[in-house]
Measured scan of single mutants.
Amino acid sequence: RYRTTFTSYQLEELERAFQKTHYPDVFTREELAMRLDLTEARVQVWFQNRRAKWRK
């Protein structure tokens, strides 16, 4: 599977959502995914990776 490349707008929005909550529920993820034209799975994985980065 190829690596997803996020646009700067998508990253800004994902980071903004991350500032609000590190653990968005499925509705929040679905809403973000639709708004950013991504799949909910991509959003979920982004948050997993972002939390890992945050913990370091």
Results as ranks from 00 to 15, higher is better:
M34S: 14
R16T: 02
Q10R: 00
Q44G: 11
T28A: 08
K53Q: 14
Q19V: 09
R51Y: 07
R51P: 01
L14R: 01
F27Y: 03
R42T: 12
L36P: 01
K56W: 01
Q19L: 13
A52Y: 09
V43I: 11
E30F: 07
R55S: 15
N49S: 15
A33D: 00
F47D: 01
F18W: 05
A33Q: 09
R55P: 09
A33C: 15
D25T: 07
V45F: 04
T5R: 03
T28W: 08
V26E: 13
Q48M: 09
Y23Q: 11
R3A: 02
A17G: 12
E40D: 07
R16S: 13
A33Y: 03
E40G: 07
L36D: 00
V26M: 07
A17W: 04
V43T: 03
L38A: 10
V45W: 05
V45Y: 13
M34N: 04
R50H: 05
H22V: 08
R50Y: 02
V45S: 15
R35H: 05
E30L: 15
T39P: 12
E40C: 07
W46T: 02
E13V: 08
F47W: 03
E31W: 08
K56L: 02
D37E: 06
R42L: 13
R3H: 15
F18V: 00
E40I: 13
V43E: 00
E15L: 01
F18N: 01
Q10S: 03
R50N: 04
T21G: 12
R1E: 12
L32Y: 03
T39G: 07
A33S: 09
F6C: 10
D37C: 10
E13C: 13
L38P: 02
P24Y: 02
T28P: 02
Y9N: 07
Q48C: 06
V45Q: 12
M34T: 10
Q48G: 09
K56G: 13
R55D: 12
W46V: 02
V26T: 10
L32D: 01
T7M: 03
E30C: 11
F27D: 13
T4L: 14
R1K: 15
R3F: 14
W46G: 02
F6G: 04
R1S: 14
R1W: 04
R42E: 15
Y9H: 11
R42H: 14
E12G: 12
H22T: 09
D25Q: 03
R35L: 07
L36V: 08
R29L: 12
F6Q: 07
T4Q: 04
A33T: 06
S8H: 15
E30Y: 14
L36F: 04
D25A: 07
A41S: 09
E13P: 00
T5D: 15
E30K: 09
R3I: 15
T39Q: 12
L36S: 02
K20A: 05
L36A: 03
E12W: 05
E13Q: 10
E15Y: 01
T21F: 03
Y23D: 15
A33M: 06
E13N: 14
R50P: 02
Q44M: 08
A52V: 12
V45I: 13
K20F: 05
H22F: 06
F27E: 13
D37A: 11
V43Y: 01
A17T: 09
K20M: 12
A33F: 00
K53D: 15
T39F: 03
L11E: 14
L14M: 10
L32A: 02
Y2S: 14
T5F: 06
H22M: 12
Q19K: 08
L38Q: 03
A52P: 03
Y9A: 12
W54Q: 15
T4M: 11
T5I: 08
R16A: 09
Q19E: 10
H22G: 12
R1Q: 15
E13K: 03
R3Q: 13
E13T: 06
A17E: 14
L38M: 11
W54H: 09
E12D: 10
L38T: 14
T5M: 12
L36H: 02
E40R: 08
E12Q: 05
F18Y: 03
F18Q: 00
P24M: 04
S8Y: 04
Q44Y: 15
A41H: 06
P24E: 04
L14A: 00
E40V: 08
Y2W: 09
A41K: 06
T5A: 06
W54T: 13
E31C: 11
Q10L: 01
F47V: 01
D37G: 12
T21D: 11
L11D: 15
W46H: 02
L14N: 03
W54S: 10
T7I: 02
H22S: 11
Q19G: 14
R1A: 15
N49R: 07
K20W: 05
Y2M: 12
V43H: 01
K53R: 12
R55Y: 05
R3P: 11
M34H: 14
D37N: 14
K20I: 13
R51E: 08
T28D: 04
F18P: 01
F27I: 14
E30P: 01
E12K: 06
T28F: 11
N49P: 01
V26Q: 09
A17F: 08
T39N: 10
F6A: 05
L36C: 09
Y2E: 15
R51G: 03
V45E: 12
T7Q: 05
W54M: 08
S8M: 08
L38C: 07
A41Y: 08
R3Y: 09
A41F: 02
N49Q: 11
Q19D: 14
E40Y: 07
E13L: 08
F47L: 04
F27P: 14
E13G: 07
T28N: 09
K20E: 05
Y2R: 06
Q48E: 15
V26K: 14
R16F: 10
K53L: 11
K56V: 08
T39A: 10
K53C: 12
Q44A: 12
K53E: 15
T28H: 11
F6L: 14
R35G: 06
S8R: 09
V45R: 06
V45H: 07
W54P: 08
R1P: 06
A17H: 07
Q10E: 11
R42C: 12
V26Y: 15
R50F: 02
A41M: 09
R55M: 10
W46Y: 08
D25F: 05
F18H: 01
N49W: 09
Y23P: 01
R50V: 01
T4R: 03
K20V: 11
K20Y: 08
W46S: 00
E31M: 11
L11I: 03
R16G: 06
Y2D: 15
R3V: 08
L32S: 01
R3K: 13
V43R: 01
L11M: 12
Q48N: 02
E30N: 15
R35F: 05
F27R: 14
E13I: 03
D37T: 14
R35S: 08
R29M: 15
R1M: 10
E13S: 06
V43A: 02
P24S: 02
S8F: 09
L14W: 01
F6I: 09
R35C: 11
F47S: 00
K53P: 03
L38V: 08
R50T: 09
R16E: 11
W46K: 00
R29E: 04
F47C: 00
F6K: 03
Y23W: 05
L36Y: 04
R35P: 00
D25H: 10
T5W: 05
Q44I: 13
R35D: 04
T7V: 04
E13H: 04
L36W: 01
Y23V: 05
Y23M: 04
E31D: 08
Y9P: 08
S8N: 08
R50G: 00
L38H: 02
R35V: 09
M34I: 09
E40N: 09
P24H: 02
R29N: 04
R35Q: 04
H22R: 13
A17N: 04
W46L: 00
R50S: 06
Y2K: 09
H22A: 12
S8E: 12
K53W: 06
M34L: 14
Y2T: 13
K53I: 05
N49A: 12
V43F: 01
T7D: 04
L11H: 06
H22C: 06
Y2L: 14
